[in-house]
Design a protein around this nucleic acid. Structure first.
Lengths: 231, 231
DNA sequence: GTCTATATTTTGATAGAC
DNA sequence: GTCTATCAAAATATAGAC
């Protein structure tokens, strides 16, 4: 008989590496939930580990520590759902469907997925306080903005008007407005009616198409990801 | 001779109550700075007290503890500078001065006053995680929005168009956009050009005046401060 | 690779001197 | 009213068993 160190590559269960990778993912899931609920400083590694169904030792076996775990989360999970959702919308009818879809996304995010905006706020605060990690966060945000820019470009194209100059400015405004309104609606739903985002987007896009995209920012060019002024 | 317990009401130096009030204010200042820099959970009462030039005991003599100190800060310092600035702008020329002034405020806030948006993020996260304090935060935000609404009303009035229906929606959008853009510019100044806010505001106001304020939200009415959906 | 037990440090909060 | 000294709890991180 061969020892069990030679052949068991078949899916008898899980490879050692696969098992470790799964543990890593479960720990990242638990970390996302716990950091969102308690904050970076307020969450303990013990709570994260237990919430994932593991011990502290398992966490330290997979990550260097609390900070490294948070940074791994920042790198792997800091992309913005507004860009993902916009890409799903991409290819739809060129009428108001897109704005309506984003409006619905905002209400769902504010009312149901409490963790999302909290975790993003934690990412932002951590990056502001630890400038060496800001580049990573900026990268993720930039990717999301670029994805959204592409969607908006095809959208305006479908409406038959200019798609050139300051589209990145438009997507920046959309992202800023999205997060700002999500936060305000969590403060008080009465502040942000269910159709406020959709209506504002319609206003922005109308102005964009009517003036040939003349609204925000043809003066100063937008770089893909500029330098940070922190460190 | 009269004992020194009877007459010394004259401004020999500071009354006992005045001295205590001054200590309170200094502690609140230090708390604002420290909570902004380290976060609620990350800041220690020792650091706050020392930063104010007092001992831990003095802090506990003036506040019930860390949580009570933070809540006192939330109640006394959570108003929004965008509303204050708008009121300063109030009464100016009815041309683009207002939008330009707010645009300048955004760049200054993002680039120079790091603590402001960080502390607001801490207020938001604390209130999201401690729903019993959300009403207080919502009150401050509502006051700021109402102040801004008044300024916008007089502004549009000066431009000669409708000032009635959804002005609160407009100020809500302005506030959301302000904070969203401040956050994005701190992530990467290249994301938010210096005139993006001003241009977007001009777009919104133009649309507002041209359509007779038809843009956001004539369908759902906005209550002054509605109920929170948390507790 | 994961768990249990523990060393070390730090924190919020309190007691008593002045 | 403020300071100094200190307690008790909780946290990060590590060491060694399995």
């Amino acid at each position: 008989m061969a020892t069990d160190e030679e052949a068991p590559q078949r899916p008898k269960r899980l490879t050692r590496a696969e098992s470790k990778a799964r543990t890593r993912e479960l720990l990242l899931d638990a970390a996302a939930e716990t950091f969102a609920r308690k904050g970076y400083a307020g969450a303990s590694v013990e709570e994260i580990a237990e919430s994932a169904g593991f011990s502290i030792g398992a966490l330290y076996s997979n990550f260097g520590g609390k900070q490294e775990l948070f940074l791994a989360l920042l790198e792997s999970r800091a992309s913005d759902r507004i860009a993902e959702a916009a890409q799903l919308i991409d290819g739809r009818q060129p009428d108001g469907t897109a704005a309506a879809g984003l409006g619905k996304l905002l209400i769902e995010t504010a009312d149901e997925d409490v963790a999302f905006e909290s975790l993003r706020a934690e990412f932002w605060l951590y990056a502001v306080r630890n400038p060496e990690s800001m580049a990573t966060f900026a990268e993720r945000v930039g990717e999301s903005r670029d994805a959204l820019t592409g969607v908006i470009a095809r959208l305006l194209e479908g409406q038959g008007r200019g798609t050139d100059y300051p589209l990145q400015s438009i997507s920046t405004v959309v992202i800023a407005l999205f997060h700002g309104l999500v936060q305000l609606r969590r403060i008080d739903p009465g502040f942000v009616s269910e159709d406020l985002f959709e209506r504002t987007l319609a206003c922005l896009f109308t102005e964009a198409t009517m003036t040939g995209v003349q609204l925000p920012g043809p003066s100063a060019e937008q770089s893909g990801s500029g330098e940070n002024a922190d460190d």
